[in-house]
């Protein structure tokens, strides 16, 4: 066992140049302080890397082979999550340049194209990923339904999923207002009017959503705050529950 190896790590046999490089890169003190296991090229290390890495340990270490087939999930839940992450990254970058005031919002967005290097690219990616996420989440729900994956013991995770669907729509809807152009203003006006038609409570709810009788500065700041922090936070929490429950419910659904 090489010096610095933690007990239980395995590594391939055989000397040679590659072995030497391997030794230097993956078996030094620093590497092993970061990654507890050796490079994942033996079954044991492969399981260790999944089990000991905070990001990878969302997964089990082994998985039934039908679930790896792309046609079982089409990766749709994973892609929804991936888009959520991508939206967070591009969204944070957009926040550098965007001020949610009626005076500045529109010009800030317009300036992305002219004054900010790759600004338009960032905005476009944020926009298209947002549309993409709505679509992947809907398709994910369809795949879960048609594979009968909501059945016991996964009932509650389906409910969590429905909440995530609503949150996804709300995230997209609140973001829609932010560019403060005609499209934004009127789409949100039409959208909030729909809520306003609710019996009894409709008017009050719309008033709270808009912070007034029409979509104006108050609505902009409310939508902005919900869009950049409130809703993403709630969505992240529900996603954590969603993923946790997949593991707790015994991994993904499988025929009895």
């Amino acid at each position: 066992m090489a010096v610095g190896d933690r007990p239980g790590t395995e590594r391939p046999k055989g000397p040679g140049l590659l072995g030497l490089i391997y030794e230097k890169v993956f078996h030094n003190y620093v590497w092993q302080s970061i990654f507890r296991s050796g490079y994942p090229n033996t079954p044991r290390n492969q399981m260790l890397v999944v089990a000991t890495n905070v990001f990878l340990h969302l997964h089990p270490t082994r998985i039934h082979k039908t679930h790896v087939k792309i046609t079982h999930t089409y990766c749709l839940g994973g892609l929804s999550f991936f888009l959520f992450l991508g939206l967070t990254v591009t969204g944070v970058l957009l926040m550098f340049y965007y001020v949610p005031s009626v005076e500045r919002a529109y010009t800030d967005i317009a300036a992305l194209e002219t004054n900010v290097r790759y600004g338009a690219l960032m905005r476009n990616m944020h926009r298209w990923m947002a549309h993409g996420m709505v679509i992947t989440v809907l398709l994910h729900m369809m795949r879960v339904f048609y594979t009968g994956a909501y059945k016991p013991p996964r009932e509650f995770n389906w409910v969590v999923g429905v909440i995530l669907l609503i949150l996804t729509l709300l995230l997209s809807f609140t973001g829609y207002l932010l560019p403060w152009d005609q499209l934004a203003l009127w789409a949100i006006t039409v959208g909030t009017n729909i809520v306003g038609s609710a019996p009894v409570l409709g008017d009050s709810v719309v008033f709270v959503m808009r912070g007034g009788f029409e979509v104006g500065p108050n609505a902009l700041i409310r939508f902005y705050t919900l869009h950049v922090i409130g809703l993403p936070l709630i969505a992240a929490i529900f996603m954590a529950v969603h993923f946790w429950r997949i593991r707790r419910d015994g991994g993904m659904a499988r025929p009895l």
């Binding site: 999944v50 089990p60 270490t61 082994r62 082979k65 790896v68």
Partner: peptide
């Protein structure tokens, strides 16, 4: 019937 998540799932 089972595969290892690394590499079979993680790579996909």
């Amino acid at each position: 019937e089972e595969l290892l998540v690394w590499p079979d799932l993680v790579f996909v």
